[in-house]
Design a protein around this nucleic acid. Structure first.
Length: 358
RNA sequence: GGGUAGGUUGAGCAGGUGGUGAGCUCCGCUGACUGUAGAUCAGCCGUCUUUCGACUGUGGGGGUUCGAUUCCCUCCCUGCCCA
């Protein structure tokens, strides 16, 4: 439950980094079944600035989305903008990727920005690192994340905003256990698993989620796996107790021509689709599948027509959210394994349906 | 008819004034993408070969030469100018 509505779990949050889920309107998101979306502290504070958004009535009003919003703290940018920032114990100094100007994020400032944005859920400021780094570096980042977690909580800006803590520790079981203990001991409203889906293997991700699940035991708070994921990752994570997901994948791959369907992944830029009159997914009820053929969308991609990006994004977000709905139903009806097997077969590497039809 | 500038791998170009032309950009073919520096990026893109590599290719034909994209002759095609 959030100030802007309830969330059914497991649930997927489309990512709208810059106050827009790329290529989609709030109406599109609503039609796709989105309940909650994600925005970003780092990006929105650089442009148009959190103060401006606050003056314009907050992020919900600014972007025309009145459902729940979760804001990331900028922790991921500490990882992804590695050559544009410098980390110290107090916080992180960034060179703006927009204009090169210098900006400072600390746990306190990240919470202040998120309060200005007025999101329903704010994330603690964390440091994530490549899990393949030397043990000592992963441990350092984890310990810093723990200290920043306490500072984030102490700096929480508004009573109507939930704050989630983030568990780090790479793919090291003992570090993960230590991080679960540290973060779950704090009065966060929800607990997130960070630092995964950043290049580790599927087996490492599953093993790490096992460790977290057993360490969290019966902790009743919502569990959010950050930055995941792919259709098959959802099953891996839901099996291990995850309630919430966010990922850029459905919208990003859509913009490069890949669509997800019950028959697996299709790359609409492949020549084979130029003559394919079928909809992207005959079982999907989205705007793209109701009105257009694969051939048409394939043509739009070649011509770089803007509608291509919107139709593919509408479809992937709709399909992903529908998958989450089917997951919820399967948990109630006890058909999780059946659904898992079906989607795995469709998306399995080497599956003929993975390839474009001949 | 005269003059002039050209003709390079699907397209558009670069280059090369006697010593091994496969270089670029498009197009095209594939792949990647996980808390979005991404409507992006990467590979391939003459033929044969998994690779290594081999072969072919500078409008056609002929000539000179050890060797021609380069020099000579001739023909064809295109743009522009003049009649």
């Amino acid at each position: 439950m959030t100030p802007h509505g309830r969330i059914d779990t497991p649930q997927f949050m489309p990512v709208g980094t810059q106050a827009t889920v790329k290529a989609l309107t709030p109406g599109d998101l609503q039609a796709a079944g989105a309940q909650m979306i994600l925005g970003n502290t780092y990006h929105l504070n650089l442009r148009p600035t959190s103060e401006r958004i606050a003056r314009l009535g907050g992020l919900h009003r600014f972007m025309g989305w009145d459902g729940p919003i979760l804001t990331d703290s900028g922790g991921f940018q500490v990882f992804s903008l590695a050559d544009l920032r410098r980390v110290d114990d107090d916080g992180v100094t960034f060179s703006s990727h927009v204009d090169g100007s210098t900006h400072r994020l600390t746990p306190e400032r990240a919470m202040e920005i998120q309060a200005l944005l007025g999101s329903d859920v704010a994330m603690a400021f964390d440091q994530l690192v490549d899990p393949s780094l030397p043990h000592a570096e992963v441990a350092d980042a984890m310990e810093r994340t723990h200290r920043w977690a306490e500072r984030s909580l102490a700096a929480r800006g508004r009573a109507d905003q939930a704050v989630f803590g983030i568990i780090q520790g790479g793919v090291d079981a003992s570090l993960r256990r230590e991080s679960v203990a540290a973060i779950s001991s704090l009065p966060f409203d929800g607990l997130a698993v960070g630092g995964l889906s950043v290049g580790e293997s599927k087996a490492e991700m599953a093993a790490t989620l096992d460790v977290v699940a057993s360490a969290l035991d019966v902790d009743p708070r919502p569990r959010y796996l950050m930055g995941v994921g792919s259709p098959l990752d959802f099953f891996t994570a839901v099996e291990r107790g995850i309630d919430l997901f966010d990922c850029v994948l459905p919208t990003r791959v859509a913009r490069t021509g890949q669509v997800w369907t019950d028959a697996g992944r299709l790359n609409l830029r492949n020549a084979a689709f130029l003559d394919d009159p079928a909809p992207i997914d005959a079982s999907c009820a989205c705007e793209a599948c109701r009105g257009f053929s694969r051939a048409y969308v394939a043509h739009l991609f070649r011509a770089r027509e803007l509608l291509a990006y919107r139709l593919a994004s509408v479809h992937n977000v709709t399909w992903t959210l529908e998958l989450m709905r089917r997951l919820r139903v399967s948990l109630v009806e006890g058909t999780f394994a059946e659904l898992h097997a079906r989607i795995t077969a469709a998306f399995a590497r080497g599956d003929p349906q993975y390839r474009a039809p001949r």
